[in-house]
């Protein structure tokens, strides 16, 4: 599980995240929903250690990781642009995290291949990321993040760069995979339909503040603020 306690972050005079508190149960998928610039990606990057929280703390399985570097956290992240290493083959990309952990060559090859097959990418091992479609790149990024068996999976707008058909298929696969691996997941999105379809719970963010966290139905029926109700397009 992962827990944010009163996390804040400023960039110069701009407050990106303001007193955000959240707690995810093991195996839960939480969607952080909000318009662009609301601070949701910053919150995700704080969870991964790519940004330092200005104040507050982040705990993973009870351990305070607030000041830990990304490489010391064991968190898997899929970046919005996938951030696949362009000079490495698909297999080398997926193996990278295991290599950094000193896993022996045979074992990491086998584990990476197994993970690629799990995300439905058998046979693409030798190819370079640039030769793959957007959806395939997405799967590589997912396999790369999952093969290190992270405590938490972070997804930054994972479906935003896909066309509509691919988006719907990938959404269902993503949810199925998450359920199967029972991995605690935070998904950041600006698309309420996506959040409703995939998440156990939704946190709605606006202007750096988490307005409300709850199940989809609660948010629709009992919006805590005009912003939440406007975002869901229902009048409570």
């Amino acid at each position: 599980m992962i827990e944010f306690q009163e996390v804040s972050k400023n960039f110069g005079a701009v407050t990106a995240v303001r007193n955000a508190s959240l707690a995810l149960a093991d195996g839960e998928l939480l969607a952080v929903l909000g318009p662009s610039g609301c601070g949701k990606t910053t919150l995700l990057r704080i969870a991964g250690g790519y940004e330092q929280a200005g104040s507050g703390s982040v705990r993973i399985h009870g351990r305070d990781v607030t000041r830990l570097a990304p490489e010391a956290r064991n968190v898997g992240m899929v970046f919005q642009n996938y951030a696949l290493f362009p000079h490495m083959s698909v297999l080398d990309n997926v193996e990278f995290g295991l290599r950094m952990r000193g896993v022996a060559k045979e074992e990491r090859g086998a584990r990476a291949a197994a993970m690629l097959s799990l995300v439905g990418l058998d046979g693409a091992e030798k190819r370079k990321p640039a030769e793959l479609s957007g959806g395939q790149q997405q799967r590589v990024a997912l396999a790369r993040a999952l093969v290190i068996e992270p405590a938490v999976l972070l997804l930054d707008e994972p479906l935003a760069n896909l066309d509509r058909n691919e988006r719907l298929r990938m959404r269902d696969e993503l949810r199925a995979l998450q359920q199967r691996l029972r991995i605690t997941t935070i998904l950041v999105t600006h698309d309420q339909e996506e959040a409703l379809a995939i998440a156990d719970r939704i946190a709605v963010m606006d202007a750096g503040r988490i307005e409300q966290t709850g199940r989809a139905l609660d948010l629709c029926l009992n919006p805590a603020s005009p912003f939440v109700s406007s975002f869901f397009g229902l009048r409570g």
Partner: peptide, 11 residues
């Protein structure tokens, strides 16, 4: 982000 991704993977 490539460098960030590598950090996240343990580098």
């Amino acid at each position: 982000n490539l460098e960030a991704a590598a950090r996240g993977l343990g580098a």
